[in-house]
Write a protein that binds this DNA or RNA. Sequence first.
RNA 1: GUCCCGUUCGUCUAGCCAGGCCUAGGACACCGGGUUUUCAUCCCGGCGACAGGAGUUCAAAUCUCCUACGGGAUGCCA
Length: 463
Amino acid sequence: MSEVRVRFAPSPTGFFHIGSARTALFNWLYARHTGGKFILRIEDTDAARNTEEALEVLLKGMRWLGMDWDEGPEIGGDHGPYFQSQRSEIYKEYLAKLEAAGRTYEQEGATFFKLEGERYTEFDEYHGKEIEKVKAAPVEIDDAIRGKVVRAESRDFVIVRSDGSPTFHFVNVVDDIAMGITHVIRGEDHLSNTSKHVELFNAFGVKPPQFAHLPLILKDPKMGKGKMSKRDKGALIEEYEERYFLPAAVRNAIALLGWNPGDDREVMDIGEIIEAFDIKDIQKGAARFDEAKTAHINFQYLKELPVETYAWFARPVLTAKGLIAEDHSEDHLQRVLAICQEKITSLEALPEFCGYFFTDDYPEDEKTKNKILKKGEPAELAGQVKDALSKVEAGDWNVASLDAAFNALATAHDQEKPFRWWPLTRFAVSGVSSGPDFLPMLEVLGRDCVLRRLERVGASAAS
RNA sequence: GUCCCGUUCGUCUAGCCAGGCCUAGGACACCGGGUUUUCAUCCCGGCGACAGGAGUUCAAAUCUCCUACGGGAUGCCA
């Protein structure tokens, strides 16, 4: 009944890539699913590119996606420190164990790990020269995703560089041992390295953890071949944050990259995902990140939000564009959003979609303008609507009264329905031909605003 | 070069381990129609895949082998 202990061990690069986020998420989900511990360990051995800012990007990304850690930076834990740059004493200790066991040797100032097996020299195509190789016994890896993988190492490898700094393979294994990691869930690019790691575990006399190698995330085929890199559009978590995606939706989309609950569910709340998550359901083949699908999931989340919450997310989007002030009336904001929420698929598009509710200075769609103003007698029609709506008192300005006013207008002109006046009116008050439902839109805009804009369009059409 | 991993609709995938219920299911995208006298919502429909070959079997998307393609490792990067 040993407790599950998993870790996410990123190297802070200044970016939080979707692939890293997926690795982090799967570890986190597994910990939460099993009631185990999720450890965040920072692999900051490459001093040159590890900065405070780079770490901040990472931690911010983790928090934005709602992943918390049980041990790691800022909160500590019983197996710290959680920065590799601060663990050199531990590495020295473990290096001594390997030395004592006679599994190391020095060459050109660097410390090598010595493989066991018959030695021979051979011309190596890749290196283009004769090199020493070792016939080491094949290592058997029981991978939770790929099954049994057998691979033999053939060369000794560096564990401490000539400048005294330990290498990735070494510190990774040492830390996993020292931190009591039970499951190593990581990208497939490490699968071939795993034989090195198992050699090291064996040399320390420690049973290796359960490995699970995740398929890679490839770039959108339209963008080219190969795995997704940080330069690809949509590859960075920051991008979704900036575009006002809901973190829960992005997390849901990432969870679906190479995993599914085994049934048709796609949009799931985090509790459901945690409950359903299991390593054995992870895909073997590489996946491609689909932005359109992420946008769709995002919309599903957006639709379900209570209007209060929707407004909480929408307010910063609108203030950023200068459409509303910081202290803009919450009631008014919610009345606007209530009629827009079901129509619009992303928060990013919100300013364009509903800007005219907040300012008179909104763009007019040229196509719509030409179509509507060229047809019939725009100035006359606008005047008729204005007269009809003027009869509705401010205190009575609601959908029912507006409907009645339009119908009265139709009747007065021998029309069965007021359709003739709608498109022009919509254009007059919003500058576009589409938007929220018509009458609710007028109601929310308010009497003064609607009459003012009708007058304006009437004047501009007449000129 | 050598070694390792992978390959189902354009994309994400179900099915594969325990072969028949698969004329291969769902979702996104796309296309068409409808509702909404706006519309980006919504509804209906369509398009569309087992990489190729050989073998095992009464029967293969499912098992075996080969080939092709994709990816990874082979770093004093992580």
